[in-house]
């Protein structure tokens, strides 16, 4: 999933304080799972904002709505009838949803309500960690299913670097060394001999480096 974190309420207040009516728009997908922008977080934020502005003597309308997704036209269309009632929208979706909402409703200011971090997993309740950076050319087959691009602080393809100590990364003792994990895993698979194969220089043109990316599937296009 895409992992995000709630923005501080104060920052959102600054974004919207000049408006008289704002819609807090949640998303039922990833940000619900990582408890940053689902229906519940929408409710809490809206409640807090209503109290803040009322306490400041402001007659501010703050409503709540949560969509199935904000990254698909069909769900975003749901708010077409209601969006004109508001001066602005705070989207609690990931950066993708915020942008797609903004693209669709070009006349309406859309503000981000979360900080979007990474594609990751729920390690345990309340703990999410990164697994993928979407480089566009997956090499997990040769690295024991553990990604050096996302799990090594230097995305070293022939690691580990000299900073790996007792299984941890030099940047922080709480971060596992991705290459230690790869080596442990190759060993468990009985494939440690593959460690000595040099990983070739990576083609980063499919990564962020190549510019905004696009996937086109003609076989499923309508």
């Amino acid at each position: 999933m895409i992992v995000a974190e709630k923005k501080p309420i104060q920052e959102i207040i600054e974004e919207i304080k000049t408006h008289d009516s704002v819609l807090i728009l949640g998303c039922n997908e990833c940000v619900t799972v990582c408890e940053a922008g689902g229906k519940k977080e929408v409710g809490v934020l809206a409640s807090a904002l209503r109290m803040y502005f009322l306490n400041k003597g402001r007659d501010m309308r703050i409503d709540e709505h949560t969509l199935e997704r904000q990254c698909d036209h069909e769900y975003l269309d749901e708010i077409r009838e209601m969006i004109d009632q508001y001066d602005g929208v705070v989207s609690l979706a990931c950066g993708v949803g915020v942008q797609f909402t903004a693209e669709k409703y070009t006349q309406k200011p859309i503000y981000p309500g979360v900080n979007t971090f990474f594609m990751g997993v729920t390690e345990s309740r309340g703990v999410w960690t990164e697994r993928c950076q979407g480089c566009g050319q997956c090499i997990l087959a040769s690295t024991g299913g553990i990604c050096p691009v996302s799990r090594c602080a230097k995305r070293i393809l022939n690691g580990p670097c000299g900073g790996s100590t007792t299984g941890n990364c030099e940047i922080n003792k709480d971060v596992a060394c991705g290459w230690q994990l790869i080596i442990d895993r190759l060993k468990a698979l009985g494939r440690l001999d593959e460690y000595e194969e040099l990983a070739p220089i990576k083609d980063w043109s499919t990564d962020r480096a190549g510019g905004p990316r696009k996937v086109v599937r003609e076989d499923v296009q309508s």
Binding site: K154, N158, C161, G163, I171, P200
Partner: peptide
């Protein structure tokens, strides 16, 4: 060394290729 050790901890790192490459 990772940039977090230095005076530009907020900077990007490149690592387009690694030391072996």
């Amino acid at each position: 060394d990772h940039q977090s050790f230095g005076d530009c901890a907020n900077g990007q790192n490149v690592h387009d290729i690694d030391s072996m490459q």
